[in-house]
């Protein structure tokens, strides 16, 4: 996909995210929007996956360690053709298969159940390890929040991946700078994120603007060429990206828009799509 197509797809996914959260009357738009571009890039450019055959053995895997970004994941999967886009409106409804956090048992294309922060990266490490043990050549991508890396389990997993040289593992940190209680540096600063992953024996790729497809493209190409160590892509993003009143606001971490807000958000995204 070229850059323009990726941008268009990401814009559509943003509309899906906002619509799904609006329909659910709850959910996590902020982080879903900050990560919408990288997830679009993964599903529409980078990963070897097939929506017709979601369980094929040699597929690349994606684990959404920051599981509360389920709206972004579901929107990508729906747009990719894993299930009907229309179903996104059932998000978080009683009886819907689209649970508040990703559920691998019931949702085609979800490679790992997640939602409890810090755990997804371990599962991703397990998948990458399994590929190494049984000589398979798929790759495993996992997306973490910057607040999430305060969890000790992230460093258990990082230490393991570094020690075992899992170069088929790509850890992506969505550094939007905000967590529920506020700015991550005020709550319990995980900075310097880059030095931490480097000290845990990762090849670290810093991305200045994780909402820019050129920069993402460059980073993932570099990741592909990395040999002998796991990769951490630490990308600065804007929380709530694409919806003016949600941008850079911790308050939009886990809140649904009301009718007026929804209307405004969709108008803005519509306009962005035409540009």
């Amino acid at each position: 996909m070229n850059k323009e197509m990726l941008q268009k797809t990401a814009n559509q996914i943003r509309k899906d995210i906002v619509t799904a959260v609006y329909s659910a009357k709850s959910g996590h738009p902020g982080g879903s929007l900050s990560a919408a571009d990288v997830m679009t890039y993964l599903y529409f450019e980078e990963m070897n996956v097939d929506p017709k055959n979601p369980d094929k053995a040699d597929r690349d895997r994606f684990v959404l360690s920051k599981g509360h970004n389920a709206p972004a994941l579901y929107s990508c999967l729906a747009e990719k053709g894993y299930f009907p886009v229309e179903d996104l409106k059932t998000l978080r409804h009683t009886g819907s298969y689209l649970q508040g956090h990703p559920d691998m048992k019931h949702i085609p294309g979800v490679d790992m159940t997640s939602g409890s922060l810090g755990q997804g990266i371990s599962a991703a490490v397990g998948m990458a390890l399994s590929a190494k043990l049984f000589n398979e050549d798929y790759r495993v991508f996992t997306l973490l929040g910057d607040g999430e890396i305060q969890e000790g389990q992230v460093w258990e997993a990082a230490m393991f991946a570094g020690a075992k040289k899992l170069d088929n593992l790509i850890v992506i940190v969505d550094n939007n700078g905000l967590q529920i209680d506020g700015k991550i540096d005020d709550v319990c600063s995980p900075y310097p994120i880059i030095d931490k992953f480097a000290a845990f024996n990762f090849k670290v790729i810093a991305v200045e603007d994780g909402n820019d497809f050129d920069q993402l493209d460059k980073a993932f190409n570099e990741a592909r060429l990395t040999d002998g160590q796991p990769v951490a892509i630490v990308m600065k993003t804007v929380k709530g990206k694409g919806v003016s009143f949600m941008e850079d606001q911790a308050g939009w971490h886990g809140k649904a828009p009301n009718d007026d807000e929804y209307k405004q958000a969709m108008e803005e995204l519509e306009k962005a799509g035409e540009a």
Binding site: G152, W155, E156
Partner: peptide, 8 residues
């Protein structure tokens, strides 16, 4: 030191 609680 591999125990994650140390890093927390």
């Amino acid at each position: 030191l591999p125990e994650g609680s140390n890093w927390e």
